[in-house]
Write a protein that binds this DNA or RNA. Structure first.
Lengths: 235, 235
DNA sequence: CGACCGATTGAAGGTCGTCAAACTACGTGG
DNA sequence: CCACGTAGTTTGACGACCTTCAATCGGTCG
């Protein structure tokens, strides 16, 4: 359980069958027999804030299921600065592009200490050949990612900065079952919204003064979602 | 061959086997035997500018392969105005979400007179069960769509308006093999870039005066791509 | 304690959105 | 054939918003 440790799923297939979040993940509806086809080890990795899971252009052989924590997918522009195109949390799949035979299309960087299962592409392919159920799950995942990408564009990259920040905060607050949620650094928020750090800082500070947002020490915050929804509706 | 006519693929499977653009489409590497599994008719539809292929929220039973023409995928925001999240052209697949069992997530509206093949979901599923090759193609399609969505975000929704317009024009000019390319209406360009019609109009007019863009009558234009690339690099 | 990193705030200037008007192209009807 | 209405584009003026550059503040870590 130490930080940074890489722990193999020693018990092989059984590990996945008894996974605590299996209902959320790719293998949700596989049968007992299916797991016999998992020959390669499925390792569990733990990474901490700032670590990189994979980089743009790397050719991987694995896809990753997020067990806990938060991951940002970053794309770099020709001019050098970056844009965060998606956030991945529990149950999400990172690095799906390897399943399509492509190199990773983003940098995947840890925002909150992360626990992932590394699933070799070979396992997915073997299971996929055996059961159509996995393909169905995969399509759902892909569609989900696509839907989120589109929503990210239309919600977080459209309209005045205040509305964007409001929409981001609402989104973040819904991510977590707790009454507080993870509040990214201003620079990351800027990279998500397509605005500068200063603008984000000004707006969050403003919201705080207006009582719509309360910020705590460990990067966590609470928000008045109802009031933010009004701002979010602005153009 | 009349406009608006809906033509069935009377010859069934053979139609697809001898498709002129088969190397581009979903069925690219199916074998002769595979086509015996296509029981439902695959119709060819022709729509003209402004027509709607499907609408947000409709539950479809088909996916569409674009044979020719241009299609925009539009998402509406709570406040009412719209954002174009993708353009589909020859070889692209529209309405993939139905394969994942979801209703359509966008309005699909014709920009240039369109010819599509309507493929029932049942056909894809039956073929998919029979051959893993189709699943591979499908994953590639999905990944392609996802990659484009991300690029759309980071290229067309980031930086000053001049740079966005420049990037859009470069993109459009690469779409077509001809020396001229399709230039959308200013409102559509605005919806792609997340800026107002007026801003787009000002910038295109400006580029025209600077000689970087020449506009012809039938919504077509030619551009100085090299010069635009300089502008595109701006933040 | 001092260095450093991130957040915050200020001032100035540029970009872009808004409102409004003029212009063009096109199709309709007189 | 021309007048006219409509829809889309262009242009202008003005103001709000956002970026840029710079300084300050607060906290952490060496």
């Amino acid at each position: 359980m130490k930080e940074k440790a890489i722990q193999a799923a020693w018990e092989g297939p059984s590990q996945c069958q008894h996974c605590g979040i299996r209902h959320l993940v790719l293998f949700a509806d596989l049968h007992h027999d299916d797991f016999r086809l998992v020959h390669e080890p499925i390792d569990e990795l733990k990474l901490q804030m700032g670590d990189t899971l994979f980089r743009t252009g790397e050719t991987g052989t694995s896809v990753y299921t997020v067990r806990s924590g938060l991951l940002k997918l970053v794309q770099y522009l020709p001019n050098g600065d970056q844009r965060i195109v998606r956030l991945l949390r529990q149950g999400d799949l990172a690095g799906m592009e390897t399943l399509a035979g492509e190199p990773y299309q983003h940098h995947a960087i840890v925002l909150q200490s992360l626990s992932v299962c590394r699933i070799p592409v070979a396992v997915v392919e073997r299971l996929g050949n055996a059961t159509p159920r996995l393909h169905r799950r995969l399509m759902e995942r892909w569609q989900q990612a696509l839907g989120r990408a589109d929503a990210w564009l239309s919600e977080l990259s459209t309209g005045p900065a205040r509305a964007r920040v409001a929409r981001l905060l609402i989104r973040l607050s819904h991510c977590c079952e707790s009454d507080t949620f993870y509040l990214p650094g201003r620079e990351d928020m800027g990279a998500m919204l397509g605005v500068t750090t200063e603008t984000v800082s000004r707006i969050t500070a403003e919201l705080r003064r207006e009582g719509l947002l309360r910020v705590f020490d460990n990067n966590r915050a609470a928000a008045d979602v109802a009031a933010l929804a009004v701002l979010a509706a602005d153009t």
